[in-house]
Write a protein that binds this DNA or RNA. Sequence first.
DNA 1: TACCGGACATAAGACCAGCTTATGACCTCA
DNA 2: TGAGGTCATAAGCTGGTCTTATGTCCGGTA
Lengths: 311, 311
Amino acid sequence: MSGTETSPPSLSHRVPDLGAMVLLLAVARHGSLGRAARDVGISQPAASGRIRSMERQLGVALLDRSPRGSRLTDAGALVTDWARRVVEAAEAFDAGAQALRDRRDSRLRVAASMTIAEYLLPGWLIALRAERPGTAVSLLAGNSAAVALRLLAGEADLGFVEGLSIPEGLDGTVIAHDRLVVVVAPSHPWARRDQLTPGELAGTPLILREHGSGTRQVLDAALAVHGGLARPLLELSSTTAVKGAAESGAGPCVLSELALGEELSARRLVKVRVAGVRLRRQLRAVWPAGHRPTGPARDLLALTAGATHEP
Amino acid sequence: MSGTETSPPSLSHRVPDLGAMVLLLAVARHGSLGRAARDVGISQPAASGRIRSMERQLGVALLDRSPRGSRLTDAGALVTDWARRVVEAAEAFDAGAQALRDRRDSRLRVAASMTIAEYLLPGWLIALRAERPGTAVSLLAGNSAAVALRLLAGEADLGFVEGLSIPEGLDGTVIAHDRLVVVVAPSHPWARRDQLTPGELAGTPLILREHGSGTRQVLDAALAVHGGLARPLLELSSTTAVKGAAESGAGPCVLSELALGEELSARRLVKVRVAGVRLRRQLRAVWPAGHRPTGPARDLLALTAGATHEP
DNA sequence: TACCGGACATAAGACCAGCTTATGACCTCA
DNA sequence: TGAGGTCATAAGCTGGTCTTATGTCCGGTA
């Protein structure tokens, strides 16, 4: 039984697949394997076997089966909660992917900056789908200039941008705020500092996105009065690359709070406060000047307005 | 090709499986299908086919293939970011599940309250695994009293509790703060209020967890001077049930900020501020009085200390 | 007491998706 | 021009998951 292990079982082998997790959520909801099976569109024996093999795989009993139905065990409740997070992430993936696909024949064409497309838009799309099922949405991601271009060319109905100003020719409204935070690896000296002075931040080479990103624009403006931003330590092309470099100890970086989830709670990165500097930027919905959104675009706008991240 | 569709394709059919997502992340990291294949332990043709079928499924080109390697397209970068969130959730699932399984022969036995076990612990375990690979952890979830019991009986090495006080016989340290927030469905009248008075909150029947939960303890204490908590509208047994009831418009509820992720950004629930009331609670690591943690328990404690959610 | 119905488990066979190995085509660099 | 890297294609195998058909258990009810 324990001597013929061959390959290092990878994540996807240690974790039940999405279908199994969806099924588990259905069982938790309905209190019965059979009903859950019908809910997800498979037969009762299939559901039974699937949960059973999940229990075998995890080495934990998930259900208390009785002739009157099945209830979660304590461990099962915990597993179900963790599974719910995976399924929610998958739903966001799905919502985003559908918007990327639709391109043609979509009733709502959205253009959004990378940060917004990455972190916020999938959630909005899920909400939109719940309220207005059947609204086909297409998504195009790019920087502020590209978003403006699309809108003015009539190739997009609604745009989302981050940064300090509204691009020429557009009207817009602030839908949320986003805080920028300074983060370092736990081993970095700043990790033990209570807070920094703005001058220190300005004087230290940072890991940054390349020029033209919304993040950098805000940082420049905020530190202008403190001597301006030092020459960057590294200029990378994606948020992920910036995080990676900072985690491996290359130096401090500044990122949107939206981009920092797991890294903070797992303490792979730690926040450093900066005294007296408001590193905050607006996220805006935008549209061609004078053409207030109507139809599906108005629906989406109504959903996003007020989704402010910090009042 | 399009006329024999039969069953409603469920989420798990619309979304690539975990293995494919992990592979995509590897391709993004390595810039080559072949290298990514080796990284995840499959053959190059398998990787090629897998990515290709993912592209077919999503209806989007993910890679720019060249004889010098493969780079993500713009859409591919977005898809990869969304996939990363799914994989991270799966890693948290895995870390938690392993701790549930290990039970015996584990070098570190943790007892934690539900909220902490659900939202925080998996992240800590991932961090611990990164720093001290091979530390087998076992997890037992229960309320504060159960945690105390385990610790005092010598059946757990380290505990985590939420609430106002440290259980009798234990020492502890505050490792984080957690804000409680009042949330309602977007259709609720409070959703349009700028803020509430404490008296209003105290006077309104709320959806709550059953008695004895940490949340309720804090709420009681905070509103004691404002006339005390009204009789609950509903008492439910899980955080999820509370969220569900609030979303369907049953009434306002009070939840840990940790439990509210997607619901807020998708605007299925909205926060309501309460003037002048500090709905905040401490999350503490605890251990038997006089027995400061050593070994693996000390390692985990070091990781969690400072993972404060809001300074 | 006997029966009925709901719930879960088991068994046997069909089916499909993904893997592997072997090979080919293409580009770049020395 | 040949070597070494890239990705794609083809053929065959394997394993997991589904379905249908049935068995077992329990609780309520006449």
